[in-house]
Design a protein around this nucleic acid. Structure first.
Length: 656
RNA sequence: GCACCCAUAGCUCAAUUGGAUAGAGCAUCGGUCUUCGGAACCGAAGGUUGCAGGUUCGAGUCCUGCUGGGUGUACCA
């Protein structure tokens, strides 16, 4: 039951009768919302104030008039008009009790499946299969998975599709590495490890030469800017006191740029020096001076169906996929499809051809481009050397998805830096004929370190996803051990708990932030025992489970009995209200594709339970009825938390 | 240069998309308890929402300007 939706439906006819412009009714109904403060009741309706102009009456009077025409008696206590015209609504306890008793006897906890199910394709995670997954893949994977689970639970048809990077330059690197550096014995014994070593080795060598080549340019730029700065400073001296604002601005800017150049130079030097210091690597680098071009050539041969490279690609790919599959298993993330870039390879030429035929694409500076109003640069769909780009693949992907699944919406869970690409992609796709589909870029911010820069390891590389998981679980294991000095849990139970708490903590810490913001990565915060964390919610679940163990009551027996939830204490009512609001949290989460609404809900629920737990004895309740009622509240709380966490991809344990 | 995003308590973040006195967590300080799981609970303190204007019944949210940060920007993904 969604109380908010019910209230809206009750106000709908009375508002429609009063407001001349029917188009505004929906927007006015949106102004009914949960009360900002509990002292204003449970819900508040704010539509009377904006109607002042339309109706030429005082808002308080409008509010009273609407209330008189609205049938609320069975749901709410008599409403109050307050302040400038707010309508304060408080649910009747008997109504609330009724809904709670329905929910506790329902497997779906009172949430009906969507009346108008939609078909969603959700594109998320999408790593390069040749590289180990790193911290940058957390958000896409975790947010995408949570959205899939939530929309699916709400009754929608959801197709999850992992758009793997399995056709790019990374494979050129592996192929080149295999042809020149493979250790056959190592490859036989452990292909994934050997391929990974080859990828890293080739990447290092390419990097070395590129850095080496870039250095003079950076040095030159540095010198130019230094000279410019000199000139400006002398201008400043001769110009006397009249310091132009523009001049001083460009001074500071130049100073910053010089600083950046210096840092970049230092980084390049460090990189090349590290390789030069390693005699083996230095020898290899000297032996392969044009490795970067050679890698591109191998990639091009692969795309041109060169039999040898294609054979190697077919041989390597399953190994690479096994590697990332391991991470997904640990994260408990599954995909319906994993159609990588290679899947669309043979559709690309036809896409460009079709764009041309429809007059959307044209030649420009040797490339094939689609120019779109409102964008400074065109979308390039074919390079002048004939190669296709990821724009081309993305268009082919939209076409394929539309043909195959006819979705109502396609969601791309991709970081915000690609906003412009998606704006352009969607604009082209619509003109291309895919106008009747909701195309959404579900953008998210960057995971930062405590230095305010993108999160890196101590060595300065993007932190590997598996090592992050290992660290989170290791820290969780330490907490588990500290909290179980009497060793009531077995070794294997402890390991399981640590995994659930560690991985859950990592996911929850990501999901609790508004996805559009950057956030600071912190093991301490993600494993907080109290506070806004997965652990706190999981602990609440374990406490509920513990009460049932101690009571010796089977949940099924209790539910089959005549026991009913009743609300006698303010803490019970607060908990009951929170329980009934699950549907609102799910509606918010799915409306704007923001899982942080659900994490906030679960935290509030856990908090309400703790307060209830503190002030309302369950097993020692004064009467049998009260005891049964409170046990039912515990059960509903436990199941609500379990469901909510499950929709976020997070597990619970009965003992921790 | 142009475009987009951000700036909220000491720190990390919210704010139901324009609603009442801007909320949480952490840290700090104080309190509760012969523990139905203390991985707990209750309370206090903490704010000119970067600055200056504007729009209206009402602005953290919308508009203009400024300051300070970030990101993207014709053939990488």
């Amino acid at each position: 039951m969604n109380p908010l939706a019910l209230l809206k439906s009750r106000f709908q006819p009375s508002l429609a009768a009063l407001v001349p412009d029917q188009a505004r009714v929906g927007e006015l109904l949106e102004m009914i919302r949960p009360a900002q403060d509990a002292k204003f009741g449970d819900y508040q309706a704010n539509f009377a104030m904006p109607l002042k102009k339309d109706l030429g009456q005082p808002p308080q009077e409008i509010a009273r008039k609407i209330l008189a025409a609205t049938d609320l008696g069975d749901v709410c206590q008599p409403p109050e008009v307050a302040g400038p015209g707010f309508i304060n609504l408080r649910l009747r306890d008997d109504w609330l009790t009724d809904k709670l008793n329905q929910a506790v006897h329902d497997d779906r906890l009172g949430i009906p499946p969507a009346m108008a199910p939609r078909t969603f394709v959700i594109d998320y995670s999408s790593p390069n299969v040749a590289k180990p997954m790193h911290v940058g893949h957390i958000r896409s994977t975790v947010i995408g998975d949570a959205l899939c689970r939530t929309l699916r639970f709400l009754g929608h048809r959801v197709i999850s599709d992992n758009h793997l990077g399995d056709w790019g330059t990374q494979f050129g690197m592996i192929i080149y590495g295999y042809k020149h550096f493979v250790d056959r014995a190592a490859y036989q014994a452990a292909p994934v490890a050997e391929l990974s070593r080859l990828y890293k080795l080739v990447h290092q060598l390419v990097d070395f030469h590129e850095s080496h080549r870039a250095m003079p340019q950076v040095q030159e730029r540095f010198a130019r800017r230094a000279a410019e700065l000199d000139q400006l400073q002398s201008q400043l001296r001769t110009g006397g006191k009249a310091v132009d604002k523009k001049l001083s601005q460009s001074l500071t800017k130049l100073g910053q740029q010089l600083h950046e150049d210096r840092e970049e130079l230092a980084a390049l030097q460090a990189k090349t020096a590290a390789i030069a210091a390693d005699t083996q690597l230095a020898a290899l680098a000297a032996k392969h001076p044009n490795i970067d071009q050679a890698v591109l050539a191998e990639t091009a041969k692969l795309h041109a169906d060169d039999p040898e490279n294609l054979r190697l690609w077919h041989e390597f790919l399953p190994n690479c996929r096994d590697e990332i599959a391991r991470v997904y298993r640990r994260l408990d993330v599954r995909f319906d499809y994993e159609h990588g870039e290679s899947f669309y390879h043979d559709r690309l030429a036809a896409v460009v051809e079709d764009l041309r035929n429809k007059g959307l694409a044209q030649d420009s500076q040797g490339a094939v481009c689609v120019f779109v109003d409102g964008f400074e640069t065109p979308m390039i769909v074919q390079k002048k050397d004939g190669a296709f780009l990821y724009s081309t693949t993305d268009l082919a992907t939209i076409q394929y998805r539309m043909e195959t699944w006819r979705p109502d919406a396609i969601l791309y869970v991709v970081d915000h830096r690609q906003s412009e690409h998606f704006d352009k992609l969607f604009a082209v796709a619509r003109r291309w004929g895919h106008a009747n589909v909701e195309l959404q870029h579900i953008k998210f911010g960057t995971v930062m370190g405590s230095d305010g820069k993108p999160y890196k390891t101590r060595e300065g590389v993007a932190a590997g996803l598996e090592s992050l998981l290992d660290e989170a679980v290791a820290r969780a294991a330490q907490v588990v051990a500290e909290n179980d000095p009497e060793a009531t849990l077995s070794e294997s139970e402890r390991r399981d708990v640590a995994e659930v708490v560690g991985v859950g903590g990592l996911k929850f810490a990501d999901l609790l932030h508004n996805r559009t913001s950057d956030y600071e990565f912190s093991y301490e915060k993600m494993l907080l025992k109290s506070g806004y964390s997965a652990t706190y919610a999981q602990y609440t679940y374990a406490r509920c489970a513990s009460i049932f163990r101690k009571a010796g009551v089977e949940r099924d027996v209790l539910l089959a009995s005549a026991a009913r939830i009743g609300l006698t204490h303010p803490a019970e009512r607060a908990l009951g209200l929170q329980l009934i609001r699950l549907s609102e949290a799910l509606a918010e989460t799915s409306a704007d594709y923001m899982p942080n609404h659900l994490t906030a809900y679960l935290f509030d629920l856990a908090k309400s339970y703790s307060t209830f737990f503190e002030s309302c004895p369950v097993l020692k309740a004064e009467t049998e009825d009260l005891r049964a009622s409170r046990l039912l509240l515990c059960d509903l709380t436990a199941r609500t938390i379990r469901l909510g966490l499950e929709l976020l991809g997070i597990k619970v344990v009965a003992k921790m």
